[in-house]
């Protein structure tokens, strides 16, 4: 029973992990990643780690929701319902992945692994709690302080303006002549449209979407939405 569950969950974890980089939508990708994590959480339960297993599911559900939000903010093709393939150094990466897997598998199989399984009936969660707030409190608290520092750093990094002016101050190279455009790479002015990647036909998608907008606004409505849809087509 345990073996069958373990086989099923590992297959799910690996399959989901592989799908992450194969599906054409960022939203689907992050939810596949979540499924992979949930499967690992399930394996954790089988490995008699009830707290870590369930906490993985809980944490990853929240984390992947946040991830999806960011996907949609930054990706071209936000709803992610048209095909996309954005990879570089593809063969090299496959090679590295396979070599890493083969190396670690070989190491696993060739090593004489120690065996000292968890005793049945051990108060695992209780012991973990005592450990967290006992001997290892310093480590636990360090993790907490690190998280706090990360939060502060994230807010500082992502805030548009700081106390002493614009947050990008200093990260943009100075102009070639005083007050001129910054040297180096010029930011695109198109508001983050990267529809060129992948070489797929985005025009038809734009059309479909504008049709949809019409459908929802009804006829004889203010033309604001129509202009917007027109813009989209122009960019596409």
């Amino acid at each position: 029973m345990t073996d069958a569950l373990f086989t099923g969950l590992s297959a799910l974890a690996l399959y989901a992990g592989w799908r992450v980089f194969r599906v054409d939508s960022m939203v689907r990708a992050s939810f596949w990643l979540m499924i992979s994590f949930i499967a690992v959480g399930g394996i954790g339960l089988l490995l008699s780690a009830p707290y870590i297993g369930v906490a993985t599911v809980f944490m990853m559900a929240v984390e992947m929701t946040v991830m999806v939000l960011f996907m949609v903010m930054f990706m071209m093709n936000p709803a992610g319902l048209n095909p996309m393939m954005m990879v570089h150094q593809h063969r090299f990466s496959i090679g590295v992945g396979v070599v890493a897997f083969a190396g670690m598998t070989a190491a696993t199989l060739l090593t004489d692994l120690p065996s000292n399984p968890v005793a049945a009936g051990k108060a695992i969660v209780h012991d973990l709690g005592i450990e967290l707030l006992g001997d290892s409190m310093l480590i636990f608290e360090t993790a907490g302080v690190t998280l706090l520092a990360t939060m502060v750093a994230a807010v500082i990094l992502s805030a548009r303006t700081g106390r002493f002016g614009d947050a990008v101050e200093g990260s943009v190279p100075p102009g070639l002549e005083p007050g001129g455009t910054p040297a180096g790479r010029v930011p695109e002015k198109s508001g983050g449209h990267h529809h060129g990647h992948g070489g797929h036909d985005h025009g038809s998608h734009g059309d479909g979407r504008s049709d949809h907008a019409h459908h929802h606004e009804g006829d004889g409505h203010d033309s604001g939405g129509h202009d917007h849809a027109g813009d989209k087509e122009k960019h596409a």
């Binding site: 690996l14 992990g17 592989w18 954005m86 570089h88 990466s93 890493a100 670690m104």
Partner: peptide, 17 residues
């Protein structure tokens, strides 16, 4: 899992992926 992750981290172009 680590192998697949390594492949993804090296091959994907977008930051989030």
């Amino acid at each position: 899992l680590i192998g697949i992750g390594l492949y993804g981290a090296l091959s994907q172009q977008s930051f989030v992926m």
